[in-house]
């Protein structure tokens, strides 16, 4: 199902060239999705007042980067790639992100216990 189609050329349908619609999907297209996720996550981090919302923004950012890694490592998208490095780095990022989320969540719960709020704007005891 989700195997990238590689058939068009070999299938004799060579008529589809660069300019026709739809354009073949390239690394750049994946990068755009990655960039969108990254930016959405970054803005989410900056604007959300709920600490958990901020954490979700971080997840989005990491996923944007992960998508880049996978796209750079994909054999189906270009000839000379990052290779398995891309996929492996994505794997490790997923694991590290899980660890980070666990800690951040524990800290957020601790904050909630002490402040009875999860609003990061209320985290203003410390300033100067």
């Amino acid at each position: 199902m989700l195997r990238p189609p590689d058939g068009l050329v070999a299938d004799g349908i060579t008529a589809i060239d660069m300019d026709s619609f739809p354009p073949p999907i390239t690394v750049s297209h994946y990068l755009v999705v990655g960039a969108v996720l990254f930016v959405l996550g970054a803005v989410c981090m900056a604007t959300k007042r709920n600490a958990l919302g901020v954490l979700m923004g971080i997840e989005l950012v990491l996923n944007g980067a992960n998508l880049n890694f996978v796209a750079f490592g994909s054999r189906f998208l270009r000839q000379d790639t990052l290779g398995l490095d891309g996929e492996l780095m994505a794997l490790f990022v997923i694991v590290l992100a899980a660890a980070e989320a666990a800690v951040a969540l524990a800290i957020a719960l601790n904050f909630y216990n002490n402040h009875t709020t999860i609003d990061v704007d209320h985290a203003d005891d410390l300033k100067g």
């Binding site: 601790n110 402040h115 990061v120």
Partner: peptide
């Protein structure tokens, strides 16, 4: 707890940004 929250949120964000740069 406030210090920990701030540190973890900012730290995770910075790490995410760095990861994007690495990619």
């Amino acid at each position: 707890s406030e210090a920990a929250l701030k540190y973890s949120v900012y730290g995770a964000g910075a790490a995410g940004v760095m990861l994007y740069g690495i990619s």
